[in-house]
Simulated scan of single mutants.
Amino acid sequence: DGEARKRGILISDDLARDALLVQGDATRVKQILTNLMSNAAKYNTDNGRIHIASRLADERVEIAVTDTGLGMTPAQLSELFQPFNRLGRERSAQEGTGIGLVISQRLAELMGGTLRARSVAGEGSSFILSLPAVIDPDTVRSDLDELTTGRAEYHQRVVHYVEDNETNVEVMRGVLGQRPQVLMDVSVTGLDGLAAIRARRPDVILLDMHLPDISGMELLRHLKSDRSTSVIPVVIVSADALLSQIDEAIEAGAHRYLTKPVSVNELLAVLDEVLDKVDTRFS
Rank of each mutant, 00 (worst) to 15 (best):
D1T: 11
E3V: 10
R7L: 12
D18S: 15
V22N: 03
V22C: 06
D25I: 09
V29E: 04
V29L: 10
Q31M: 13
N44W: 02
D46A: 13
N47M: 07
G48C: 00
I50N: 01
H51G: 11
D58Y: 01
V61H: 00
I63N: 07
L70P: 00
G71Q: 08
L77K: 15
L77G: 11
L77E: 10
S78H: 13
S78P: 00
E79M: 14
E79Y: 03
G88N: 12
R89E: 04
G96Y: 06
G96N: 14
I99D: 00
V102G: 03
Q105A: 08
R106G: 07
L107Q: 06
V120N: 08
V120I: 04
G122A: 12
F127I: 04
L129S: 01
L131K: 03
A133M: 00
A133R: 00
V134A: 02
D138K: 15
V140R: 08
D143Q: 03
D145I: 11
E153A: 09
R157Y: 03
V158A: 07
T167L: 09
V171D: 08
M172T: 15
M172V: 14
R179F: 05
L191A: 12
D192I: 03
D192F: 11
R198C: 12
R201P: 07
P202Q: 13
D203A: 10
V204R: 00
L206V: 14
D208S: 14
M209E: 10
H210N: 08
P212Q: 05
S215H: 05
M217F: 13
R221Y: 07
H222L: 09
S225V: 00
S228A: 12
L242Q: 11
Q245S: 15
L258E: 05
V262Y: 06
E266T: 15
L268K: 08
L268H: 07
L268R: 04
A269H: 08
L271A: 10
L275G: 02
K277H: 13
V278G: 08
V278A: 13
D279E: 15
